[in-house]
Design a protein around this nucleic acid. Structure first.
Lengths: 213, 213
DNA sequence: GCAAAACATGAGTAGTCCTCACATTTGCGA
DNA sequence: TCGCAAATGTGAGGACTACTCATGTTTTGC
């Protein structure tokens, strides 16, 4: 485990900047801190990012860093906030003037491409949104497990649809499997009632894909 | 951060038990260690789980704990392995004798229910598979962000399908959004080529749901 | 019965996040 | 221009944590 918990701000809250930089000088310094953090996350991941290293690379003392960010998570969160604000605006723009099915099709398709491109291009986004501190080896084993499970599903699909492209079936199975896990995670975090609806909706969508109509 | 770095097992590998317990006595002790770890994860999450506490609760010294587990991750992984083995068997059983579309429908539906039940009932599974160490506050903000984005999609859907049940549209939008993020995470970790296929498949599935056919 | 292997112990090491008492710089009214 | 309060900057040290290792105890194989 490299990981850990922030001691300062206990278990739930994400503290906002401890003090807003009001002078020009400090605003520039905070900017440098965020840039340093971003670079370090891109290089090593947020978990391996050390507060001391952030300060050093920003040319700032550790104390200054903590003057503006109450804890490590706040630094990461500040970066996350930027990207979400950005992407939120982008989504709103893409969907704003959709008026018919064809428009939705085009807008959604474009949106997915943009998002995917963002994920591919921005290590910081990947790191932050892909389970902030999840450790790499465990995630690879998660993937291996998913693949193994999807394989079982693939076998069934191949039996039922022998004429279909096997590679496409494998992709479908893996996707459906992963979506199922994502749905359950979501279902857990939204609570029982809404969660049940989500799982039901997933089941419907997955089945439509699996057995057609 | 309370945390720190595991000195022993560097960055990628998950080490296997440092030494297999060969005597009856130690086998029982290892069992107690895992039980203690499981309980602590259920109570506080794997990130907050302290190795010292695991040892204490198992009635064992910290040294004994490290005799059988090379690091903290190995303890968590040992628990994860149990559950995956279990669920793997369950999946195989459910899918083994599927021979037609109706059979697949029934088996898959049952499978989802079982899995969902497992997620609901087992805090340890939730913790381990839902991004081992992801911090709670950040994940709540992730959810808030997802909701905000899904909201934009919901608005469009309501415009296009004014007769549909609004609540169902909201569920659909949130689900599609979350699935998209899951797909992209998956796409990243499987590499560019297969990833592109996955994103394409997601796009197709989502669009079928969004604009019908 | 005895040597060797397995097992058990817990004080100590290294490394992390974060604090706090104190120094310096800036904004601004007189 | 001067004075002074507020804002900003500093880094050694505190508090915790994962993990090690020298040393002692129990079990096993012969």
């Amino acid at each position: 485990m490299e990981g850990s918990t922030v001691a300062g701000s206990q278990d739930g809250q994400i503290a906002s900047p401890r003090r807003a930089p009001s002078q020009q000088r400090s605003r520039e310094r905070v900017e440098r801190m965020l840039a340093a953090a971003s670079a370090l996350i891109a290089e090593q991941g947020s978990d391996a990012m050390r507060m001391g290293e952030v300060a050093e690379r920003a040319g700032v003392s550790i104390g200054s860093l903590y003057q503006f960010f109450p804890d490590k998570r706040a630094v990461i969160w500040a970066l996350a906030e930027r990207y979400t604000a950005e992407s939120q605006a982008c989504i709103a723009a893409a969907l704003a003037e959709v008026n018919d099915a064809e428009g939705l099709r085009r807008a959604f398709s474009e949106l997915v491409d943009i998002y995917y491109g963002l994920f591919l291009a921005e290590p910081v986004i990947r790191d932050i949104w892909s389970g902030t501190q999840a450790d790499k080896a465990l995630r690879e084993l998660e993937l291996a497990d998913s693949r193994a499970n999807a394989e079982l599903l693939t076998a069934v699909l191949k039996r039922l649809r022998p004429t279909a492209d096997p590679a496409a079936l494998e992709t479908t199975a893996l996707l459906i499997w992963q979506m199922g896990e994502a749905t359950m995670r979501l279902a857990i975090s939204v609570g029982r009632k809404e969660g049940d609806d989500l799982v039901a909706a997933y089941k419907r969508m997955a089945l439509r894909e699996l057995v057609g109509e």
